Amino acid sequence: MALKATIYKADLNIANMDSHHYADYQLTLALHPSETIERLMVRILAFARFADENLQFTKDLFETDEPALWQKDLTGQLEQWIELGQPSEDKLKKASARCKHVVVVTYGQQVDEWWKRNNKVKTLSNVEVWQLAPETTSQLEKLCERTMQLQLNVMDGEWTLLNDHEQVDVSWTKLH
Score class of each variant (00 low, 15 high):
138 S>N: 12
55 L>R: 05
61 L>M: 12
54 N>G: 00
138 S>W: 01
161 L>W: 00
60 D>V: 06
143 L>H: 02
79 E>V: 03
28 T>P: 04
139 Q>F: 02
92 L>G: 07
7 I>M: 14
133 A>N: 10
137 T>M: 05
33 P>K: 12
176 H>L: 10
123 T>L: 11
167 Q>A: 14
19 S>F: 09
156 D>N: 12
47 F>R: 07
24 D>V: 12
112 D>T: 15
130 W>F: 13
129 V>M: 10
122 K>G: 05
48 A>M: 06
126 N>Y: 05
29 L>G: 00
119 N>H: 07
106 T>C: 15
142 K>C: 11
63 E>Q: 11
54 N>F: 05
142 K>T: 09
70 W>S: 05
32 H>F: 12
89 E>F: 03
16 N>Y: 05
31 L>G: 03
2 A>P: 10
151 Q>K: 14
127 V>L: 13
159 W>V: 10
28 T>R: 13
89 E>W: 00
22 Y>E: 10
87 P>R: 08
102 V>F: 04
174 K>E: 00
5 A>P: 11
171 S>M: 04
137 T>I: 14
54 N>D: 10
84 L>H: 00
118 N>A: 15
12 L>P: 07
151 Q>H: 13
75 T>I: 09
125 S>E: 10
26 Q>A: 15
50 F>D: 08
171 S>W: 00
39 R>E: 02
52 D>R: 10
154 V>N: 00
129 V>D: 06
119 N>W: 01
83 E>Y: 02
130 W>G: 04
137 T>K: 05
44 I>N: 01
93 K>T: 09
40 L>Y: 02
102 V>T: 09
63 E>P: 00
110 Q>H: 15
36 T>L: 08
31 L>K: 15
122 K>N: 12
166 E>R: 12
89 E>S: 15
69 L>K: 06
2 A>Y: 06
75 T>Y: 02
13 N>E: 12
123 T>H: 12
135 E>W: 03
45 L>K: 03
142 K>I: 13
98 R>S: 04
144 C>G: 07
150 L>R: 01
172 W>R: 05
141 E>T: 13
69 L>N: 03
107 Y>M: 13
141 E>P: 04
55 L>C: 07
170 V>I: 09
140 L>E: 03
80 Q>R: 15
167 Q>C: 09
21 H>T: 08
111 V>Y: 03
167 Q>P: 03
76 G>F: 02
72 K>I: 08
76 G>D: 03
120 K>E: 14
98 R>G: 03
48 A>L: 08
50 F>K: 07
134 P>Q: 10
157 G>L: 07
131 Q>M: 12
7 I>W: 06
14 I>G: 04
51 A>C: 11
87 P>C: 11
169 D>R: 10
111 V>L: 14
152 L>V: 11
156 D>V: 04
123 T>N: 12
151 Q>P: 05
5 A>R: 13
49 R>D: 01
101 H>P: 00
43 R>V: 08
95 A>T: 06
66 E>Y: 02
32 H>I: 02
117 R>L: 14
91 K>R: 15
126 N>R: 09
140 L>Y: 01
69 L>W: 00
144 C>P: 05
40 L>S: 00
38 E>L: 03
106 T>P: 07
20 H>I: 10
91 K>I: 04
104 V>A: 10
151 Q>T: 11
146 R>Y: 08
88 S>M: 02
71 Q>C: 08
161 L>G: 01
36 T>C: 04
115 W>E: 01
26 Q>W: 07
2 A>H: 06
88 S>A: 11
23 A>Q: 06
6 T>E: 14
